[in-house]
Structure formats: C-alpha cells, structure tokens
Nucleic acid binder design. Structure first.
Lengths: 246, 246
DNA sequence: CCATGTTGTCTATTAAACTAGACAACTCGA
DNA sequence: TCGAGTTGTCTAGTTTAATAGACAACATGG
C-alpha cells in the first residue's frame, strides 16, 4: 500500500458505469468464476450489487452480448456463451490437430462429392485451365459432435481420383492425402470475409438463420508447390475464432 | 491478430475521451518518453493529435495535475513533475539509507533544540511521566538539497543529553545514536495523517502555502525495547510517497 | 515594450450517460 | 393455467461529457 495524494485517484473516473459493469462480468467469465452455460445474476440484482440503475446494467450486458460473451433470453436470464474455439491459421492448418490440441473429438463428415469442371475462379485457384476436370466435395467439420464449419473443396483430376471415397472412409483429409502419396502439404493463401448464414447453411450448421459466418477461401499446395486443393469454408463465428499466426 | 466478431469491440467504448488523453500522456510519463521537467505538448496540439476539443484535453491534463504527475504554468506550458520519492516505512526506517538507495545525497539539517518537559502526548509516546525532562529537536531532511520533511523529535533526558550537538555535527541521527552507545534501533509504531501546510511549514519546505503534507507520528525503540524517540515528521506529499512494507 | 504562444476562465449548446417508472412479453415451475 | 421472476421496450427527466467560441492572464523572446 502506498500512501500519497494518489489516494485521491479514482481508477473509475472517466469510465462509464456501464463499462465497469461489463468489465466486471467479463472478468468473472475470463477467470472461470462464470463458466459457459452459467447464468449471470439477474439484472436487478446486478444493479443493486454495482449500485447503478437497472438500465445501466442492461447497457453493460448489451455490450457483452454484442461481443458474443453472453446471450440473454427474455424471461429466463442471461447466460454465458461458450467461448469460440481458437482456430489457428498458418502454413500447416490441420483440422484434426487443432481439435486434438483443444481436447475435442474431431470428425470430418462427408456430405457429397461429384466430378465437374473448373470455372474461372476455381481454375485460377488451382492453377489449371478453365473447364479442367475437378473433384468437388462437400464436408462438415464437427468438434465433439457440434458443427464448426461447412467446406466446399475442389481437387484437380485425375490426380485426386477417389479422394472422396478415402475421405468418406477415414473422415480426415490428411489421411486421405497420405493414401494418395501426399505425406505433407501446406497453406498457400487464406482469404477471410464474413456474412450472415443463409437458410441452408444455418440448417446444416444448426444455428439460427442470419447468424454470422466467417468465410475462408484457402489454397493448399503439396511440398513441391503444386496446387492440390481450393476450399471455401464457412465457420460459425459464434463457435470459432480464427487466429492468424506468423 | 484474431479475426472474429470481436473485431466489433472498441476498447475505448465507455471510456471518456478525456480519460483516454490522460492515460496516453500518463503512459508517456511511465515509459520514460516524457521525463521529469519535460514539457508536455501544448493543449491545442494535443487536441489535434487526439482529435478532440481543447477543453477535453484540459480535462485530461487536469486529472493528471490533480494527481501530481504534471504541473501547468499559465502562459508557459505543462510540465512533467518529478515523481515522488518512494519512502519505505518499516521496522528499520533510516533516512540516510533510503536516500543512498535512491541515489540522492542525504542531509539532515539541524534547526534548533531545547530542553523541556514532556506533555501528556509526548509522555505517553516516550513511556515517561508527564512533566519528565525531554530534549526537543527540530530538523529538516533534504535530498540533493531539496527539503523533503520537517521533523520535531523528542528524546528522554538525561539519557540523550548532548544528542542535539552530535546531530548538528554529524547530520545523521543514526550516527549520533552510535555516539551514545545505541548501535541499532527500530520503529515501534507509525501513524500517518495528512493536511495542508501552514505558512511557516511551507516556507521551511519551500512549497506554496496550502500544499499537502503527510504527517507521520512515529516512535522508535532501542534493541532492548526502550523508547528512545518520538517524532512528528511532515513530509511534502508532492515529493515523497510513503511505502508501508511488511 | 510588443508580439506570439500558452494556459485559464466564462458562457452556451448538444450529445451521451444515467436514473426513474411503467408496462409488455416471455420463461418456467407448481 | 397461474404466479413469480426475468428480460425487453418505451417515455421522460437529470447529470455529465464534449464541443464551440471568446477573451483574460500570463510567460517569454526579440
């Protein structure tokens, strides 16, 4: 304890009351005093605890809700949301490894596949000519059974003939690649945008329509630098936080 | 960099603009980008830099001035104040040692001394009877020539007969004690209050009248537990920060 | 002394924050 | 179904923060 004029300093000055409420609740969440699924104390009780009006509490909770830390249900209460899973994006982005590190069971769920031809966008991404044959595959990635992302991937043919069946069997793209003699690969580029989910996506991902998706367009190359995969993934922004690493 | 809905979070929301200005300037002071004696940029310039009105800057600077971090001089500018010297208070509180540790030249300046009798308060502090003979001594403690505190000390007589002359010679109480056979002593109690300086004190300490003093009433005992000194020190709060250590 | 730069103070207006009250709408357990 | 509890929304008033402008008062260098 220091004793000086700095005793007169109030760290809360210039900090809105609603901000203090929000920060205190966030501290409870960060510290683990409030866990995902836990119910935050009722607004009126928080108002009494912080010595503010209930509206001020609502303002603070609204800020937290906006950031996805809590979710309020009318009549029921305000609950702590599960924290988005940190999803590192780097040279070696491997779904199964990320899940293992997070202590979650990884499952790549095969949805469908078909042979087609590359349009201009896919051709450019894969470094092939427009109209070249490609394998198009649709998958859902789940962690502990909960859908994290939808993926629409393109692979050059005839090199990746049968990859879809191997993936359907193994549930892992890395393993399917190994079967085709590709022991390692890396990320060439990643482009990220975001948008609301459409009805089909929402249903596949088991989220309310309109919730935000992170849209990730990526290109993978084999160790010789040859382009092997172009993917558009749609992550549930509520469930996944992309971490760009150097 | 993380990419998620939390991109929408503005750390400045709920934090007043003046507070942000104040915190930024304080960060400059803390980091050493602004040193004691340095002039802070003019208000209008800060207003442009932070994109706020000059009054908002003034509000932020006012908060810093209130805390003693800066001092504004009309027509001249706003300057970074020297940080108060950390003055530890513990069992062994030694002025000269504290100064040495702070890399400052310590000087205990003898002002006056006289023999008197203990009133009720001093008698209680020294553990003697009311009316018992005591030596009363007035001193000023300086660091690098700048006055830090005034002290009014009482010592039981006849034990400390001549202590004042030894102090006037040595400029150090610890050394004067040694001359009287007290090799070591320790702090029994410390009581701290604060108040504005009166005109006499302000003059002795070279501060504007009304500036705040930290008033420290302390009792020292020899190693046998015998009370040897009762002191009322008045520290310039602008110059000294008391640190209570366990 | 004068000019320029800088802080200090006053008045006024607008926006944001905070408080208050009331009632609607919903949840959930008995 | 009903009642209690809880969130959601609306209206309204007060306080604080921020902006704007103007001028006073002071410092400092030429």
């Amino acid at each position: 304890m220091s004793t000086s004029e700095s005793l007169a300093f109030d760290p809360n000055r210039g900090v809105a009351a609603w901000r203090r409420v929000a920060d205190a609740i966030e501290a409870d969440i960060s510290s683990g005093r409030l866990l995902p699924g836990d119910r935050v104390a009722p607004e009126q009780q928080l108002a009494e605890r912080f010595g503010v009006n209930r509206h001020t509490v609502r303002r603070g909770l609204s800020a937290l809700a906006e950031r996805g830390l809590v979710r309020a249900t009318q009549g029921s209460g305000t609950f702590v949301e599960a924290r988005p899973l940190a999803y590192p994006i780097g040279l070696k982005t491997r779904f199964s490894e990320i899940m293992a590190k997070a202590g979650k069971e990884a499952r790549g769920e095969f949805v469908s596949a078909e042979h087609g031809t590359a349009d201009a966008v896919i051709a450019a991404a894969l470094g092939v000519t427009s109209g070249a044959p490609v394998l198009e595959m649709h998958t859902i990635n789940r962690a502990d059974g909960v859908a994290l992302s939808l993926a629409r991937s393109f692979f050059p043919l005839p090199r990746f003939l049968g990859l879809d069946q191997m993936f359907a069997t193994k549930g892992s793209l890395t393993k399917a690649y190994k079967k085709l003699g590709i022991d390692d690969y890396k990320r060439l580029s990643t482009r990220i945008t975001a948008r609301p989910a459409d009805a089909g996506e929402a249903q596949s991902l088991d989220i309310p329509p309109g919730r935000t998706l992170l849209v990730v367009n990526s290109i993978n190359v084999d160790m010789a630098g040859e382009r092997i995969q172009a993917t558009q993934s749609r992550f549930v922004a509520d469930r996944v936080e992309l971490v760009v690493e150097r």
